[in-house]
Design a protein around this nucleic acid. Sequence first.
RNA 1: GCUCCUAUAGUUAAAUGGUAUAACGUGUCCAUGGUAAGGAUAAAUUUCAAGUUCGAUUCUUGAUGGGAGCACCA
Length: 637
Amino acid sequence: MPIISLPDGKTLNFQKEVTGLEIADKISKSLLKQALIMSVDGQLKDLYFSIDKDCSVKIFTSKDPEGLEVIRHDTAHIMAMAVQELYPGTQVTIGPVIKNGFYYDFARKETFTEDDLKKIEKRMSEIIDKDVKTRREVWERDKAISHFKKIGEKYKAEIIKSIPESEELSIYHHGDTWHDLCRGPHLVSSGKIGKAFKLTKVSGAYWRGDSNNEMLQRIYGTGWANQKDLEDHLNRIEEAEKRDHRKLGKEMDLFHFREESPGSVFWHEKGWTLFQKLIDYMRMKQNIAGYKEINTPEVLDRSLWEKSGHLEKFGENMYTTTTPDEKIFAVKPMNCPGCIEVFNQGLKSYKDLPLKMSEFGKVHRYEPSGALHGLLRVRAFTQDDAHIFCTEDQITQECLIVTNLILEIYKDLGFENVILKYSDRPELRVGDDDVWDKAESALLEAVKATKLEYSINKGEGAFYGPKIEFVLRDAIGRDWQCGTLQVDFNLPGRLGASYVDRDGVKKVPVMLHRALFGSLERFIGILIENYAGKFPFWISPSQTMVIPISEEFNDYAIKVCEKIKNSGMSSSVDLKNNNLNYKIREHSLAKIPILLICGKKEVDSKSVTIRRLDSNKQENMKLDSFLKSFSALNKVS
RNA sequence: GCUCCUAUAGUUAAAUGGUAUAACGUGUCCAUGGUAAGGAUAAAUUUCAAGUUCGAUUCUUGAUGGGAGCACCA
């Protein structure tokens, strides 16, 4: 006689075993129609799961995340079913729910084409229209393994072998012809899925995510509760495409890439201006924070990289170069060894610590070709790097100071939403475990002290120490990993760094590695996408454009432009033979924040009429007051 | 690096087994203008290498670059 408690506190009494469907029916007809899945004492179950004892039940619809997830999961199953119907001999592997949708990995000799996706979509639609019923069975391990082997599904058989003995093996049947090994739960029938899904792309993916394994074909889909949500999602993708920094970089004449040097940026004047502005800004902030800026060579003898451990642990990513007399040098992939060499000049005392040395160092890393992606992943980039030499006692405090600096800088650039990722020791590493213990606990303590949200990534630290990464959220809700802070008990010792402590004994300092933007190149890519190319006035690479209404006012326009430049802002004057409308359109599309129009009225009153980007309001002001108020805007407070 | 897709004026695209078309941009000329495209005209293009073919920009193979993922990662 189960008594079912509902989320609103009410209870329902039943005379005998009861299913989720019956409970929903008892609550209301409309809930029965909308019900997708339920939780029984917090555990998600199929709606036809039979309940025989008292428990609390919650029924989910497409409005709940749980409901949406099961819709996506079922869509993945129906997709696999459609694929196997259309392409016999295709093996199924795994098909999980992911953000915004799902995918399923298949093993098949022939490749899936875009046309195939359309055919699969159509077949899925037909299966959904047929509203085939779902049925769950529990199988014996051995039966399951031999069954899947027999029908040629060797991947499924392998999956079963890796499932712990203690777990129940459930098989879901969709209709009479198709079944899949799955943990579930699933919808009652295929009709519940609805039609708000779309297969989006097909690509390769390694079996079990391991690049040593064979490659499968992965079909991605997006799935939603209703048509509107699907459209909204597709619109969001379109919006993101409009902001693509590779597209905007070309349109706005910021940079380009070319075959001769894949993954290295050719900065154009405007892009380079942006780059330099960020460096100027960082320099100012770091000066205040007590950093000493240095610069070290880009090409260094291989012996240094052997000593530091880079050649051994990072060698696959390093460029080396041989001189005419057969000496081998490496192009630096990181700035740290060079920085330690600077630290090593002259005797250091404990009184010098913490010693903060910054470097805008250009590093080269031979990244796999498939990883390259515009400015976001390049082979040559400039780090806003710094190394802080300190004692063990100072680590936590220094980490906190760094974190605050990072947050302040992100905020100035328009990013207020920051989370942390903490990564501990990787498999491939230098240094003893007790040293790692110390480094990890000191850094984790600092992470906790920031009171920011953080996640832990096991085994993803640098080869010389644990790290935290700073992830910021942009204007359209995407997360970007930028800054990093790493605690290093290893490299200073390897490269012979030391300081004289209070007791007169030489000791090895701890080194903190930190970068705030991470890579200037990457950060600029993120900035472009965040602002859709419409930069805040102070970092905009072309801040103002002066437009005379006709040739008659060229002299005045030139004078205005000169005055703006003399006040430290950038300005150009458009003397071309086009009409005003044309010029306004052209420079608005070029995303110049301020246009200054000069005609008779302005000449007579020594004023300018300004037009701000994305506004058609005309603001007339005296030239002097323009210069004054906009110079103030030209720096962050 | 792996799988799939892809490569045409400066840019975005179109077309074809007989060397290519449009728009924007650029140059020149006319129009001298008040807040998102005034008019005319000219110049400019098939990634590279092999193969098939009488003939390849088009078909095939390879290389290189680019794209979507995977793996790797700032």
